[in-house]
Simulated scan of single mutants.
Amino acid sequence: MNLNKHDFNEVVNRKMTAAEKWDGMERVFGVTDVLPLWVADMDFKAPASVIEAIEKRVEHGVFGYTLQTHDYKLSVAQWMQKRHQWTIDMDWIVFSPGVVPALSFAVQAFTEPGDKVLIQTPVYPPFYQVVTNHGRELVMNPLQLQQDGTYVMDLEALERSLDDGVKLLILCSPHNPVGRVWSVEELEAISRLCAERGVLIVSDEIHADLVFEGKHTPLAMISEQIKNQCIICTSPSKTFNIAGLNTSNIIIPNDEIRKKFQQTVQLYAVGSISALGSVATEAAYNGGEVWLDEALEYIRDNMHYIQQFIAEHIPEIHVTLPEATYLLWLDFRSVNMSSDELAAFLLTQAKLALNQGASFGTEGEGFMRMNVACPRSIIEEAMHRLHSAMQNLRAQR
């Protein structure tokens, strides 16, 4: 394992720092004595370039209203070009305090109450909420689970749903929680179907930098037509573990769509970037790439360790390595428990806090989502706890 300058084995004590992942366990799970492997942030320190930039900004001592500078936007554009070979115009970049708020803004800007919005399930729970909370009709296009544990799009069902008056499609690319990196062919198919019907695509690409297999293709690169019919949601938050700085960059090539989106953002007066979010993002994109590459190597090693451990000791659980994200979608269906029973078992017997698969949709019944972006010692402890709990369960049955 090549750790170079960054020690990802370091256990950083996040307790009593108002960390949702650690200090929010009692509120969500009703317990505090478990390992938190749920909220999708890392337990690693951010890149040194980010920490140094924030320290320098703090030394200045004044944290007034802040602009998105030319250098800030240039750092975003250069990152997209270098990491994804996507050439963007800096004028396309619109600030949002987060990707989920951006999804909500898009739903409000481009649909009316009662309009249909399509999502591909199982999917990140806020995808449901940004539709139903605003009185839109939710249309689900379930992904198809294959025998090897991977998922594919059901394009025939998608076409039928789009023909039924869908106005907007929210795409998760790469997909959370199943970890797919959609192929160019898949993106071409979904783009063609939406382009033919005038359906706007809002593509959540927050995990775009966290790819292990294949290559992420920004949706706007698929065709000139879809470039002018999509909104691309990006952020450095997952990539560099700076989610708490609430900084996202929404990239909208179409002038008319961009202006309408900006008008909706302005309605809620949240269009101003924070002083620390600005410098952190710029520093991350300009100086965090080595850290990211090493973090990805470390996370993938964690995944391989878990896959091998479970194969050897807990054959009831099936692990399919994701193509992207630092999230494992664990298949517990052979354990034969309901979603609530499984979550309770993991909390009380294994002392582990994971995300219930059912919270991502009915297709997630029997699955659990596990965040593995943490030091190996925590992963090893989690596996030993899970092994012991499963041994006790076998003995009881």
Results as ranks from 00 to 15, higher is better:
E363I: 08
L321S: 03
A389K: 01
W22S: 09
P375Q: 00
S75D: 02
I88V: 12
A311G: 11
I201W: 02
L143W: 01
F212Q: 08
E188D: 10
T247S: 14
A77G: 08
Q147F: 09
T247Q: 07
A189Y: 00
S359D: 13
P113D: 05
A395Y: 06
M42K: 11
A109M: 03
G198F: 00
D340N: 13
F127T: 06
P97H: 04
T66P: 01
Q144S: 11
H84G: 05
S223Y: 08
A109W: 05
A353L: 04
H60A: 14
E59C: 04
T32K: 14
V202H: 04
M368E: 13
T132G: 00
T264V: 12
F63P: 06
M390K: 03
N4H: 12
I257C: 06
V265P: 02
Q81D: 13
H387R: 07
I378Q: 13
L292P: 04
D91G: 15
R83D: 13
N302Y: 08
V39G: 09
L138A: 04
L210G: 01
Q229F: 09
Q307T: 14
A189E: 12
A53T: 01
P36V: 03
R27E: 13
L155D: 12
L158P: 01
F8S: 00
P253S: 09
L171D: 12
A343S: 12
T234Q: 10
K45R: 12
L171Q: 13
S339Q: 11
E185L: 10
H70Q: 13
Q349A: 10
G165F: 02
D43T: 11
T111E: 00
F309D: 04
L219N: 06
K15W: 11
E26I: 04
Q307C: 11
Q147Y: 12
A358R: 10
E213C: 11
P174M: 04
L328D: 04
S272W: 10
R192N: 13
I251A: 07
E363D: 02
G149W: 07
F127K: 05
H175Y: 10
Y124A: 10
H207G: 00
E20G: 14
F110W: 06
L145D: 01
A195W: 05
N228M: 10
G366C: 02
A189S: 15
L245Y: 06
F360I: 02
D340H: 13
P101Y: 04
V130Y: 06
G364Y: 05
E312I: 01
G165C: 02
S272G: 09
T234C: 12
A48I: 14
H84N: 05
V99E: 10
C233G: 08
Q85R: 14
F127Q: 08
L219G: 06
E137P: 00
R369C: 11
L346E: 02
Q396W: 05
L37V: 00
W86I: 03
T362C: 09
N141D: 10
A48S: 13
L330V: 02
V181G: 03
R180S: 14
D293G: 09
N133V: 00
D154H: 02
D7G: 08
L67E: 14
Q263A: 14
R397F: 09
L187Q: 14
V178Q: 03
A343F: 07
I201S: 03
I257Q: 00
D209H: 11
A208N: 05
L328H: 04
V31N: 08
N336A: 15
S235K: 07
